[in-house]
Amino acid sequence: MSGENDLIKLYSGQILQLAAMIPHTDRLVEPDASVKKRAPLCGSTVTVDLKIQDGRITEFGQDVKACALGQASASVVGANVIGRSRAEIDAARAALKTMLKEDGPTPPAPFDGLEVLRPAREYKNRHASILLALDATFEAFEQAEQAHCA
């Protein structure tokens, strides 16, 4: 894909709709962990706060300052992250990377809504922004588990 028309197609109505409806945009007052990730090429940032209990996310908040693709990704993650384990977050993260870099399979449910971002595989400079929400969530989960074990 190349050219202005292809870029316009990338920002489909579904991606723009997801970007406009990001859930859990309130930061948590006392999170177990908080992580801010930044995509170096475009400057997009996502900050994730979470609480965990019994190996699952019980509360989640995010502050998303990203392009529409990063916002759409954060929307799908935010809508599905409560109740998930670290292994589920890691599996979704790995699958999203593979989908973008190698045209691999869609991330497993409940993160299969990330399929809408498959056209972005042709735009490598957008991958980091798309991965921010899951990367920050995974890192925050690890930090929260360490804090609970300390």
Rank of each mutant, 00 (worst) to 15 (best):
R118T: 02
L131W: 00
G78P: 00
A74R: 15
N5V: 14
L7S: 11
D112Y: 00
R86M: 09
E115N: 10
C42A: 01
F141D: 01
K65T: 12
A87W: 08
A144E: 01
T58Y: 02
P119A: 04
S12R: 03
R56I: 07
I82A: 03
S44R: 03
A120C: 01
G78T: 01
R121W: 10
Y123D: 14
C67F: 05
I89F: 02
R56K: 15
D90C: 04
P110I: 15
E145T: 05
M21N: 13
L134P: 00
L50C: 08
L132K: 12
L7Q: 10
L131Q: 01
F138K: 03
D26Y: 07
C149Y: 06
I82T: 14
E88G: 14
I52T: 11
K124E: 03
A144F: 03
A120W: 00
S2D: 14
K124L: 05
F141Q: 06
H127K: 14
M1R: 14
F111H: 10
L10W: 03
A19W: 00
A140S: 08
L50A: 08
I89Q: 11
A128E: 11
A140F: 10
T45W: 15
A39H: 00
A20P: 05
A95S: 15
L50N: 06
M99A: 10
R118K: 09
I89R: 07
A33Q: 05
A128R: 04
A128Y: 03
H127S: 05
P40D: 02
D112K: 13
S85W: 09
S85C: 09
F111D: 14
M1F: 13
A74F: 03
P108I: 11
P31N: 09
K101E: 11
S2Q: 10
S44Q: 07
A94N: 08
I8F: 10
H148Y: 07
S2H: 06
D49A: 09
G3S: 12
D49I: 02
F138A: 11
L50M: 08
F60Y: 03
V81Y: 13
Q53L: 12
G43H: 04
L131V: 01
G55E: 08
F141S: 04
E102G: 06
A39K: 00
N125F: 05
A20K: 15
G55I: 06
R56H: 15
V29P: 12
G43P: 06
F141A: 08
H148R: 08
D63G: 09
V116D: 00
R121Q: 06
L10F: 11
Q62F: 10
E59C: 09
D103V: 02
Y123E: 15
A140G: 12
D112M: 05
R84F: 00
D90G: 06
G43L: 09
S85D: 05
A79H: 14
G61H: 12
R27G: 03
G13C: 08
A66K: 05
S85K: 14
G61W: 13
F138G: 03
T98P: 03
L100T: 02
